[in-house]
Design a protein around this nucleic acid. Sequence first.
DNA 1: TATCAACACGAAATCGTTTTAGTTTACATT
DNA 2: AATGTAAACTAAAACGATTTCGTGTTGATA
Lengths: 341, 341
Amino acid sequence: MGTKITLKKIAKELGLSTSTVSKALSDSYEISQDTRDKVKAFAKLYHYKPNSLALRLRNQRSMVIGVIIPEIVHHFFSTVISGIEYGANERGYNVMVCFSNDSYQKEVLNIEMLAGGSVDGFLVSIANETQELSDFRHFEDLKEEVPLVLFDRVHPKINCDKVIVDDFGGGFLATQYLIKTGCRKIAIITTPDHISVGLGRKKGYLKALEDYKINVNDDYIIKIDQKKDIKEQIEKLIDLPIRPDGVFAVNEIYAATAMKIAQDRGLKVPEEISFIGFTDGYISQFSNPSMSTLAQHGYEMGKKAIALLINRIEAKEQDPLFKTEIINVDLKIRNSTKKLT
Amino acid sequence: MGTKITLKKIAKELGLSTSTVSKALSDSYEISQDTRDKVKAFAKLYHYKPNSLALRLRNQRSMVIGVIIPEIVHHFFSTVISGIEYGANERGYNVMVCFSNDSYQKEVLNIEMLAGGSVDGFLVSIANETQELSDFRHFEDLKEEVPLVLFDRVHPKINCDKVIVDDFGGGFLATQYLIKTGCRKIAIITTPDHISVGLGRKKGYLKALEDYKINVNDDYIIKIDQKKDIKEQIEKLIDLPIRPDGVFAVNEIYAATAMKIAQDRGLKVPEEISFIGFTDGYISQFSNPSMSTLAQHGYEMGKKAIALLINRIEAKEQDPLFKTEIINVDLKIRNSTKKLT
DNA sequence: TATCAACACGAAATCGTTTTAGTTTACATT
DNA sequence: AATGTAAACTAAAACGATTTCGTGTTGATA
């Protein structure tokens, strides 16, 4: 530790100026071949690496993208990040990821840490708490400095490029499939309405019920409070006097939890009760029966988001019009639902 | 964009020097109350935030920890990172995460990106490819600059503090439990031997067989090649003429995949064949039957690792002796194994 | 012998901040 | 009137790099 080798040290050691050393290392024609060789050999010997901080400060560019996601233990976000990484590397950028843990304060902290020169742009999926508080000043401030693209968990109040999943379409598709396979008492396990994705999925669910002229039953709409015991809240649904015969859950965990509860009650899946989840992750793949679900193309979303961001970063002048791209979802039928006849 | 407010701009605007502005903002006694107020008001109005790059360059400290993990879609690593974050925040540090995707080149790239002032220390879990190539020069170079702590996937050739899971003990415990519940044809689904954790778990498995005087059958030792189809490789094991009656898999996915294959073959779990996995993640929790597994305390591991690292960072003089901490594992018996009688 | 160009290198500015070491100015003390 | 000193600032160096603009030396040309 502490033996960091710098241009200055090389210069001193070789009796040259820092400018000469810098130029020699970048093979400038201004420097004689002799000196170039000498400097390069010395630099190599001492493992010289330019200080990236200094470089960034000088160049006013970092070639780094900051990503902030709410949860780390989340298959969908993982795939989004893969897509982001791919698109970023393709265009010479690196990616740094921070986690807000769905906390407003941590989101602000992370942004402050990465802002101010550290990254050239931000890719953010908003923390639940921030959506709840509806306080977006940190994003507004940020936008003056570097471009921002929101993905998945977005908010209309923030004016920037966005990439979202077709939550409405997904909710509709899932509910429609349940209806078409004979379910009539269809429940939805969703989030409180301030979570954008949950709301969109619920709207799709309601639209499908409406289209097929099925009455909405408020008992069948469960809004999970993350702070309380999730299992207990879902048990109430399954144990309803008039049990639902089809359940659409807005994420994998709710879906898998609900199915387990139903199985514990001795119910046959999908004959007596069907389940559709959202996100095609490991839980859906490995559950038994395997879970029918809406595959969200996280990888595509990541690629789209990073493309939008880099375009903004590299744009000579900013387009005042912001785009919102919608990534479609695919209904993936497995064995937690009945087959179409 | 482009309207970044700096000390210099504030100074110019108010007709002061940058030093005065800097001091005013930090409430220096050298500056009159009047000027302080004026500067602060102005700074607030224009959302002034010190450029963190400049600060780091000046202070030669970033209060940021760089974490590099091989895979993102991995429950265990997620929990480790939670622990790291907790410990880091507690001592005033922030955390940045990069992913090597198990690629040697990306690992080197990530380190280069974060080194040179960006972070005060590194927490790394080595990429598979790096373990395979056995090329650790990037770590050696790194260690001259900032402290390094390795976790989970480590290597004896790298001389630094380490935190590992008790892989050997876990392998032993799992195998012993299978033996005690009547299994005699016990298979292991593991990784190639160059992966440190797989090797440790296999050694535990072998030790248990030896202790209980059960012959080792090489057909029952499957080393999964990640580049090939995982399912196919596991099918070969389950379809062996003399089928194993107990399977210990070194991770969740192998365990769940194996169990699904067995169930597809109509085998009863655990009566005809038992399964134990490693890592207590969502897959184990939601599989059916739920998976017996070795719970690795990732959160603890993260907290231990960050503690070791920060101690190094803040130490006046370096302790030439490096520690290796071992985090114990707990056997969590669920329903994929028989009960002890 | 001036003049000029080419060569090889160095000085200084710059990025944005903090901090040490001055420098004014005004006022009080002797 | 000379000196001291506190108050309120500013200049300049430092962090580590790049780059623009010089500058001194050499050798060739007019």
